[in-house]
Design a binder for these strands. Sequence first.
DNA 1: CGGAAAATGGACCGGCAAGTCCAGAAAGGG
DNA 2: CCCTTTCTGGACTTGCCGGTCCATTTTCCG
Lengths: 215, 215
Amino acid sequence: MADALTAKGRATRARLVAGAADVLREQGVAFTTLDDIRARTGTSKSQLFHYFPDGKDELLLAVAQFEADRVLEDQQPHLGQLDSWESWQQWRDVVVERYEQQGDQCPLGALFLQVGRSRPGARAIVTELMRQWQQQLADGIRALQANGLVSSALAVDRTAAALLAGIQGGVTVMMSTGDSTHLKAALDTGIEHLRSTVAPDAAPPISGTAAAAPH
Amino acid sequence: MADALTAKGRATRARLVAGAADVLREQGVAFTTLDDIRARTGTSKSQLFHYFPDGKDELLLAVAQFEADRVLEDQQPHLGQLDSWESWQQWRDVVVERYEQQGDQCPLGALFLQVGRSRPGARAIVTELMRQWQQQLADGIRALQANGLVSSALAVDRTAAALLAGIQGGVTVMMSTGDSTHLKAALDTGIEHLRSTVAPDAAPPISGTAAAAPH
DNA sequence: CGGAAAATGGACCGGCAAGTCCAGAAAGGG
DNA sequence: CCCTTTCTGGACTTGCCGGTCCATTTTCCG
């Protein structure tokens, strides 16, 4: 039997993935060797290949999945409850804070570029993450519509796609320039765009909440 | 004197950069060796190090600059003339086409991740590109304002930043999923956002030009 | 022409990092 | 308590790839 893992085995494997994720965040994929990971996690070469027989690629893939799982988790519970302007604003703040803290590391992007075309699994991980993310944003917009806060004529999926793109791009730019202006601009403009479509019947005035901050 | 390049020398150097750019687009930075580049460009190791004494990093940096220069060029002349809805639409189409054609290659992103933290120059190249790009978008929005097509109350720089983020993110997502939906959504939603702020005095009705295409 | 500077070819080196292997320690379970 | 399976340690191999070096050819310029 191929995967008969004891408790100790599972622990070692998990330590390997988490430790690898840390090292990769710090040094970047291109500059990280298996020996770095081995040293950090207090393991030996044989353990690494015992749990990841296909070597580095397989480990990297596991780390990618590990990181992908984190992304949406870190945005909860707000991302799952986008039914009022307040919750959108809180979510926005969490996103900004999370990525500002992450700084110029984009573990997932880097991993994807590295493993990308060699292993088909990498693409699947990112695609699935994007799908779920956009789904939750779309659900949030629909919740606003249900509450009469956003025009029901709005193209929900397209708007959610645009917002997701803005976030991704904001993060991309921040990684390059070290500045979160674009991320904030994308989020704020996206939310402002939602607010500007307020349904004609129940339309509370736009308070300065999201429209502040010139640049 | 360090940089006394003859005509022949300049040609070889240029061939090296252009050829390297091709190979890097095809194979990705991580999987490209100096020998690949040497083979493709019909040069020898000594030539490579003759023109790029600091080796691979220096060559990669030159390629990054080469690619960066292309990005804005490919969007001209539209990007420099964004003074009517038609020109915005044409520009949008060019951007979509350019990146759809590029497919899942992002030479600049990949180069940045590879050279990124080792050479400070890499960050400068990307930062400058973003600055110019956003500048031209902002100029375009101001041109619309001057023509009374967009409310003069709009925060130009923030909107331009959000639009740029949307483009970057759209490209990022397309690289991962192979699908340009998000890029189009970001561009169309961005333009729609501009249209929705039409100045109260001179406000021609919104024709279906940009608001078409559900998803 | 002729000498200097630039350009070119390609053999060679050295290090590094992925992956292999086997011996031995620790669990597990009947 | 013993035998099997899993887990661990670390030395070793192997190939690749960035970088060096020097001999040779070509170009430039007075």
